[in-house]
Amino acid sequence: MNTNQICRAVMVLALSTSLTAVAEEKAVTDSDRIEQYREMISDGNPAEFDEMRGEELWKTPGGPKNVSLEKCDLGKGPGVVKGAYAEMPRYFKDTKMVQDLESRLLTCMTTLQGIPEEQITAKPFASEKKESDISSLATYVVGQSKGMKMKVSTKHPKEKEAYEIGKRIFNYRAGPYDFACSTCHATSGVRIRMQDLPNMRSSKKDAQAAYTSWPAYRVSQGLTRSFQWRLNDCFRQQRFPEPKFASEATIALTTYLAVSANGAEYVGPGLKR
């Protein structure tokens, strides 16, 4: 059993205990319970291990060029990590694209460190078998925006366009079930089974709470999950084909969701069931 697994076992135990404790209160929803649990362990989210791993990766020379990522420009100048995530996605002059955090990390890892893109995108998400460098780097970077207000710009025409396209993708119905993001995330106060669903279209409060708590440690999976992973798994459940990692479609959708969260304090990396 490695550290991660021990950690997970302890968490699951603690969670089930806290669930039993409140099982008799009828009106208490799963989300309330998870919220209670979140408070209980707020000083020790296992995502911190992933943040530390990411920080190490950021600062250690690596890739064919054997350089660190400390010259990587996340939008606030080369090497500035503090507060960068709270202003992403954003337009980057060098790539002439709007980029979210993970696509920007991909740019830095390929250009600065010389790692072939396919090597990163082949398996961009962590699994029980293997950690993901790009995912850990993302966890580190988001942690450096903790407590800061979300401030994602739509001033640049490309940013405005990404927002508009993201909104359309949010409402895009397709596949054998006719689902769009909006099928589950455009009504307030509804749930799938016992899982409460945030209304990302018309509830500022829901959109803010949902967006600012990702990336997150998923207790049920024992892994810290990135935002690209979050979207990927939503599309899986929508019965869509797979969105390509760090593609324009995913960046546009992220821009739409991030802008909806503007004004809220970023509180991630979060903790989820």
């Binding site: 397709a174 596949g175 019965r239 869509f240 084909p241 969105p243 390509k244 593609s247 479609a249």
Partner: peptide, 15 residues
């Protein structure tokens, strides 16, 4: 352009 086949979920599903 940005969705691809995975398992039984083929890219044509976005049409």
């Amino acid at each position: 352009r940005d969705f691809r086949d995975k398992g039984i979920a083929k890219a044509t599903r976005v049409e």
